[in-house]
């Protein structure tokens, strides 16, 4: 219930800011209209997916392509690579940044990961097979300390959930490119970097051989659907 309360507060804050920032021309009215519609809660915020899921293992998750690798830094400031961290696990990878303000953006992805660990916490086999990675879009702001704070208290059971960043945009960009994960950045008048403007929300399901087996956007990012896919991958290994 408290989570819902905070979500409602988010709407109030975002709506207030939108009213300030808009002029009266038609395009901006159109933006307002669309935004109001899109601000409805994404499916991942709801308990009920709204349609019946197939039985795990009754469908194929195709090999889309090999997942990207790259140098990252963990919450403790230790360097590693994405592939090292994925090793032997089924991985859910989400690109997020701690300043992300879109209800249906990074907070949704983090919330869905949180709910997944909640839902599978009594299934030791599933829990021990799964790795979750939240990797920042914004290494300039999201230092290992910030990512540690961001993840603090989120991964509170035995789930394997890392909150990662990179040492620079130069190290991050090849990773984003390898996942076709676009981001629009803000720049100041002098050309200096000023943070993340927006991005496409994408979550990647990667199997134990480091192959991407599904890509989710906001329309499909629901814990029940992701758990179904993870179970399907596990069954295909048996």
């Amino acid at each position: 219930m408290k989570l819902m309360k905070y979500i409602l507060i988010m709407f109030v804050v975002i709506s207030f800011t939108q009213k300030i920032s808009y002029a009266d021309n038609d395009i901006k009215k159109e933006r307002e209209k669309i935004k109001n519609e899109r601000n409805s809660l994404a499916i991942g915020w709801r308990d009920n997916l709204g349609y019946e899921l197939p039985k795990p293992g009754s469908y194929d998750l195709y090999n889309i392509r090999i997942s990207g690798d790259g140098k990252i830094i963990d919450e403790n400031g230790k360097e590693n690579t994405l592939h090292n961290l994925m090793d032997g696990k089924i991985t859910l990878l989400s690109f997020i940044y701690s300043n992300c303000t879109d209800t249906n953006g990074c907070p949704l992805a983090t919330s869905v990961f949180y709910k997944i660990q909640e839902k599978i916490k009594k299934d030791n086999k599933l829990l021990s097979s799964l790795k979750m990675i939240s990797l920042s879009f914004d290494p300039e702001y999201d230092t290992p300390q910030i990512m540690s704070l961001y993840g603090k208290d989120l991964s509170y059971i035995k789930a394997n959930w890392d909150f990662l960043t990179t040492s620079s945009l130069e190290n991050l960009d090849p990773i984003l490119k390898s996942y076709d994960q676009p981001v629009i950045r803000k720049y100041n008048e002098d050309g200096s970097y000023d943070g993340v403007e927006s991005h496409l929300l994408r979550v990647f399901l990667i199997d134990d051989k480091k192959l991407i087996r599904n890509v989710y956007n906001v329309d499909f990012l629901h814990p029940d659907l992701l758990i179904n896919d993870i179970k399907t991958l596990l069954l295909s290994n048996e």
Binding site: K2, Y6, K35, G105, T110, Y114
Partner: peptide, 25 residues
């Protein structure tokens, strides 16, 4: 407890930096 902290974490992020967000095509 943890849900509460998660909510606070999100809210804090919003208050830190709000950008207008819209979608069209």
């Amino acid at each position: 407890m943890h849900l509460r902290k998660f909510g606070v974490s999100i809210l804090g992020a919003i208050l830190l930096a709000i950008s207008s967000v819209t979608v069209a095509d």
